[in-house]
């Protein structure tokens, strides 16, 4: 319930109008949204029980490793609610396959749709979505760690919350099923980071400072 209460309100995209090129416009709009999502994500992380008990270095490491996974849980969650073919980055930024392909995000589109289909097939609840997002951050396999014991406590607390929630619903298999979706999430996040870096470096699409810093931390 704490995670549900601290879940940030969805952001809206600010449509870029600095260029006539529609695929570039899409990317600039998306990158601006992601940069603001990252700011919100960092504030959100501080409110997860146990996160502030980690050392500053470990907090940085987890966010540097796990930020894209945490953001993509949100994108896949919003996209699975619709049986359609779109990726819902924001209520006013829905990209279909053709728009993603034109923007150089064909791989990302396929993988996030796959993830969204998996969440949809599971009929994932809001409680599960917010917990999975926190678990993705806690489980991001940052290395080396300053204080592995604090991280263990942080992970155990989230795992226990997930188990308690599922037991209260009489669902003994769902916690495991949710955790088994983490490899696909990691693979999808890796694709997305590579795609955004490629667009920045090869197509010279400008990226905001915070987003660039976080992309380069994963490069």
């Amino acid at each position: 319930s704490h995670l549900l209460l601290t879940e940030p309100a969805p952001l809206a995209a600010n449509q870029d109008d600095s260029t006539e090129d529609s695929s570039l416009q899409t990317l600039l709009t998306l990158f601006d949204l992601l940069n603001r999502e990252l700011l919100v994500l960092i504030g959100w992380a501080k409110q997860i029980p146990g996160f502030s008990e980690l050392s500053l270095l470990d907090q940085m490491s987890l966010l540097q490793s796990g930020w894209m996974e945490a953001l993509l849980v949100g994108v896949a969650w919003r996209s699975q609610a619709r049986a359609g073919e779109e990726l819902v980055f924001a209520g006013n930024l829905r990209l279909d396959a053709a728009q993603c392909r034109a923007a150089g995000l064909a791989d990302v589109y396929e993988e996030v749709r796959h993830l969204a289909a998996r969440y949809r097939a599971m009929n994932m609840s809001p409680e599960e979505a917010v917990t999975l997002k926190a678990v993705a951050l806690a489980n991001s396999d940052a290395d080396p760690l300053d204080c592995p014991d604090s991280l263990q406590r942080f992970q155990d607390g989230l795992h226990e919350a997930l188990q308690d929630y599922e037991s209260s619903r009489g669902e003994q298999h769902r916690a495991g099923r949710l955790l088994m979706s983490l490899p696909l999430l990691r693979q999808t996040a890796g694709r997305a980071v590579q795609a955004f870096l490629r667009l920045h470096r090869q197509r010279r699409v400008p990226v905001h400072k915070l987003l660039l810093e976080m992309l380069e931390a994963k490069a």
């Binding site: 700011l39 960092i42 504030g43 501080k46 409110q47 500053l56 907090q59 940085m60 966010l63 540097q64 400072k209 915070l210 810093e213 976080m214 380069e216 931390a217």
Partner: peptide, 15 residues
């Protein structure tokens, strides 16, 4: 940690 200075600053700011 100079390379990650924005994240560092954001985490240090009180909530």
């Amino acid at each position: 940690k100079e390379k990650h200075k924005i994240l560092h600053q954001l985490l240090q700011n009180s909530t």
